[in-house]
Amino acid sequence: MIQVNELTKDYGSRRALHELTFEAQQGEIVGFLGPNGAGKTTTMRILTGYMAPTSGEARVAGYDVIKESLEVRRRIGYLPETVPLYTEMVVFDYLKFMADLRHIPNADERVEETLEMVGMLDRSEGYIGNLSKGMRQRIGLAQALLHRPEVLILDEPTIGLDPSQVVDVRNVIREVGKERTVLLSTHILSEAQQLCDRVLIINKGKIVVEDTPQNLQARLVGAEHVVVRVRGDNDGLVEKIRKVKGVQNAHALPDGAVEYQFMPAQDVRPEVAKAVIQSGYDLLEMHAVKMSLEDIFLEVTREDTERKKK
């Protein structure tokens, strides 16, 4: 559904995208992850026809985003990061206007159905200017869903929402993502983990990692992380654990527990447990922590910058 091939975009002398290449299939929810300024918004703006790339090509539903821009735009629903809406308009009138621009038959009914989907039907007579940030976000989402597009492009769709709204919006995205292609950007890693079939980590205009959230975790977890907790004082515990052969990087955590790592090939957990008990501590718990996408993300983007320095 989305094919991006060696897309490059320069803003003056600054290169925002560097030969970006990726694909997204129908029915797939693809998460676009990256720090601010990584090129997420730029990529989305090129796909939606708002901007032209400096070089490279992109296709949506088989149509070229530059040469067949109108065809592409007909098939895309887009929620920009800033959610730009006409604040002086009434919610219903605004959505009716957008529906008319898309030549939707029975626009009135469609607008109501869509407002229902995003849970904003009771606000259809209110002015957009009087809505909260979260509500505007949902009107923006409604606007993107009006024409039931084949491809949805959502730039930070849950930013500024309160926790219950976040759940609602994620459910809507999951629902529409069943038969549509969704490309969403986020810097909330847990969101990508929950929503996406595939994650693209982008940094400085390049894709640095591309995989399913599960694989990413498996692939990037080099060392196992374990947290040890004891009753009472933990004076000297770090040193004791550090002495066990095979333990790497033992350090105290702010809450009094101690974290250490070991390579999977050499499981040192029994040795650590013995050392802790023999040293007279009351061992309360010892558990493995999974590396979160957060850590992976930091690792990947850091590696990338370090490699550049060398």
Binding site: T48, R73, Y78, M98, L101, Q143
Partner: peptide
């Protein structure tokens, strides 16, 4: 200025 141009220019009108 308001940024609303982004949604108009990405809707299917010339």
């Amino acid at each position: 200025r308001m940024g609303t141009i982004e949604l108009i220019l990405t809707s299917p009108i010339s």
